[in-house]
Every structure is written in C-alpha cells, then in structure tokens.
Design a binder for these strands. Structure first.
Lengths: 250, 250
DNA sequence: TGAGTATTACTCGAACTGAGAACAACGTAG
DNA sequence: CTACGTTGTTCTCAGTTCGAGTAATACTCA
C-alpha cells in the first residue's frame, strides 16, 4: 500500500461539511412562434403547488447525465428514442445561496436545454405535472428559479449571436425562414428577411444546402423555400449581431 | 404551525445523497507582459506535491464569498484592504465527474478572477506554497484542474471581445497602450496600435478620459500618453473582434 | 382567377475594418 | 548635447459588411 492509498483508505468523508447538490433544467423550445419553458408543479413541500424548474438530486453520475436524466423523467422521453438525442444541453451556472432552500444547504447546478418541438410532457415522479409555458408567462417560481430562468434567457439570447444554437430549435432539415422565426422568438423582435438570408448564407459553416426544396410553401403562400441542414461550425464568424441594441448597454 | 413549517421541522437532511462542494479559483493577472495564473503546491494527499488551483470547501457562505475567501487566503490579501476589492470575480462553471476526486464525490464550482498586478502571495493554510506561473508553463495539475484552467482561458479570451474585462487587469487609471498590452498578453498576438486606439475610443462606455496625461513616457521613448479610466459599459458594442481567426472555426 | 404573402436576389449609401503612413514627443546611446 | 530609434496619436484609403429598401417570382387561399 502506497502512502497515498493508505491515506485514502483511512479517509473519513464525514469530516467535511456536506451539502446536497441538485440539477435544475431550463428546457426551452419554440411552439407557435413563441419561446416556451418546461415547468413542473411541485407536489410536496417546500413550495407545494408552486411552479418550478424540473430538477432533482444528483446521483452517482456526471452532472451532464443528471441533467439529461431529469429532463427525460419530466418529459417522458428516454435517451435513445430519437427526440431526446437531438437536445442541446449545456451547463448554465451554479446557485448556492445558503438560504435558497429552506430545508438545508442545497447547491443547484442549472442546465440549459434547447430542443425542437417536443411532445407534451407527462408527469414525472417528483412532480404532479409538467407543461410548457411561454417564457413571458412563467410568473412566480419556487426557490430562486425565476432568477435562474432569467439568467438562462440572457444566455440563450446571447448564444444565438455567436453560435449556431438556433439550429437546435428546428428539425434536421429546415428553411431559412424557420431559422429566422427562431431568432425572432428568442430575441422578441422581427428581423429583416433579406439581410438575414444574406447573412446566414455568408457565415461559413452555419448552414449547408441539402439541394432540395420544401414540398410545400408556407400557410399563406410564397415560393417553396430551399432546405438546409446545420453546418459544422461551432462558432459563427462573423457573428449575427442583435439589432437595435442601444449604445453602451450597462 | 403551518403545514409547511411542520414539514420543515420534521425534515431529515441526511435522507438525501450528500456530496462535498468546493470552490476552485483560476486567478489571472499579467506580469511582465505575460498572462499568469495563481497556483498552489499541495501539501497533503491526494496529489501531494502537485500543483493545483487554489480552492477549498464551501462553508456557510455564498459561493461567491467562498471564492473570494479562498483567493484571499492564498494571496494573503484581505477584503477591505484595497487590492482585493478591485478583483473581478465571476463563476466559470461546475465540475462534477464522480471520479474527479479519489476521496469522495466532490463537486467543484470554479471561479475566474481577474486582477491587476498583485503582490507575490504567501502560503495559505491549506497549501505549502502559492505562486504566479505563466499560463503556458502551468504543466500538469492535480485533479481535473488542467481542464478547468483551459476552460478558464477560453472564457477569458472570449470575454475580452465583448466586455470591458481588460480594464480589470490594469490600474484605476491606465493608458490605451496598457490596455492593448492586456489584449496582446491574453490573446497571444500583437494588435495594430492605431486601429486598437480608434476602436477603444469609439466603443461607447469602454473608457473615459481623465483629462490628464501620464507623468512619464514609456521606457523606450514616445510622447506622454493620455490617461483613461474604465467607463460604465458592461458590454462592448460593437465588440472588439479578435484578429486572424480563421473562417468557420469548428 | 385575382389578391395577398413569402422567398430570394439585388441595390445603394453609411459604417466599420485592416493596413499603412505621418507626425510629434520622448528616452537613450553616443 | 545631439542624433536616432521608439511610441502615442491621428489620418488616409480601399475593401467589406450592414441596414434599409426594391424587385421579381412563386405559391396559397378565397
């Protein structure tokens, strides 16, 4: 036994202050042109009856795996069954205010999930119900979840600018107009169709043409749009700048 | 007693899986034109004798407070004593691989600290020594700290583009050339002096003139430069784009 | 069939960028 | 003290990108 092995064998984990660690997931999708977030209604205390972000305690798994597991439990989807695999998942940040949970010290690692239109969720084990809500109608949330949601929206809006994240909200094949609708929904403002078109096609690696066109035009007319799929770029250069941002944001 | 109070009174914190939570700090500063990171040499197991990021277990405090405390303990500086108050501190992300610490499940919340030139640190309680090391000479680190450092550098380099973060590396009053040296050190490439000057002054809220000039020119001549202080912008619009980034970074 | 709408392409002036030059102010080697 | 090299600052200029608007075309719906 080496000195280090000996040390580890005699190590007492209880000697350090212990806290609980949860993951909370801000899952975003777009429905009917509006950005929606997945919420659950809490069944038990604390905050019984309140809306909250889906989440739960971390088990013997990586943080990423915990987030994906929680998302699957709340939506009723399973990894390997298609839709959940196309979800883009990334860590947002951690929240550790000592009083954020009245039970005990709980540190939450928040995750951000972006998904194409998912089916309506069914209730998970830890919640009496889960549902998609437009982000501007989320209202008051349990714990500090309203602040987490606000941070998540900031992050999502910013990431649309310099990453191809928008492609995570649409299907495998999509039109430029669908992509533009994603930006409009997340940023909350319309974009100039012509300039958006030019810009998206000019950024290398953002989208690549499938060579095909959609079988049908939009609901209200117009030519059959061309189809694209996501390119291989991880960052957009140059970025798609958000319009009408005032000078010197503070 | 309300129903919720009753629930909380009978609540057993031990019922949930418990893990240890630490904060690790990636403290960056610039010395002699090179970007340095603060490292400690571990005194005890595991990884005795290895270099590591300064950090420790979270106590009854916010995560931000824990990071600031750890930074103070390793550098020997105390909050309220000037230099430590000008440090910019922000959360990087959390690392929770179940095997990242051989003792037990430890989740680490990593922080990023940017500071103007700090004095040489003196040893803290949990480390037999602390020192500034050029980031490209950090070498192998304990735990997953090398990965954390890499993520931190990515973040720092990116944030220089769209935030006034560079002002956190210089003194209260600084010259445009000092600011340019920060960008050069972090990005690892020289910038066109004239264009940088024009750009910095044109971004609203980045810097504001003090109306004064430095008492002395640089070591090797030149006119006395004008002095500036940080403006009130939190984001740079338009951003300072990093040069020579190839098309379609992937 | 006609009206309305949407995709896509094109135009034009304004703004921005990268590269370089010019100039004056300064430190230092000789 | 002088000459020279270095540096901060301002300008110029051509190429590129951006925002806003226009136009041609193709489709849906009534």
């Amino acid at each position: 036994m080496t000195e280090e092995e000996e040390f580890l064998a005699g190590y007492d984990p209880g000697a350090f202050p212990s806290v609980a660690v949860t993951v909370d997931v801000v899952a975003l999708t777009i429905r009917e042109g509006r950005l929606h977030v997945l919420l659950v209604e809490r069944g038990g205390h604390p905050f019984a009856g309140w809306r909250a972000l889906p989440g739960g305690f971390v088990q013997e798994e990586t943080l990423d795996a915990a987030a994906l597991r929680e998302l699957g439990e709340e939506t009723g989807l399973r990894p390997g069954e298609g839709e959940l695999d196309r979800v883009h998942l990334e860590q947002l940040r951690s929240y550790g205010n000592p009083r954020r949970d009245p039970r005990m010290r709980v540190i939450s690692v928040a995750y951000l999930a972006f998904a194409p239109r998912l089916p309506d969720p069914r209730a998970g084990t830890d919640a009496s119900g889960a549902f998609w809500v437009p982000v501007d109608e989320a209202g008051e949330l349990a714990f500090d979840h309203a602040a987490i949601l606000a941070d998540a929206l900031d992050r999502a809006r910013a990431k649309l600018e310099y990453t191809p994240l928008a492609t995570a909200f649409v299907g495998e094949e999509f039109t430029i107009a669908e992509l533009r609708a994603v930006y409009a929904a997340v940023w909350g403002e319309e974009l100039h169709a012509g300039n958006f078109h030019r810009k998206v096609l000019s950024v290398p690696g953002f989208v690549e043409s499938t060579g095909e066109t959609a079988p049908r035009a939009g609901e209200r007319g117009g030519p059959k749009p061309k189809l694209y799929r996501a390119g291989d770029a991880r960052l957009l250069h140059p970025a798609l700048l958000r319009p009408t941002r005032e000078d010197g944001v503070r």
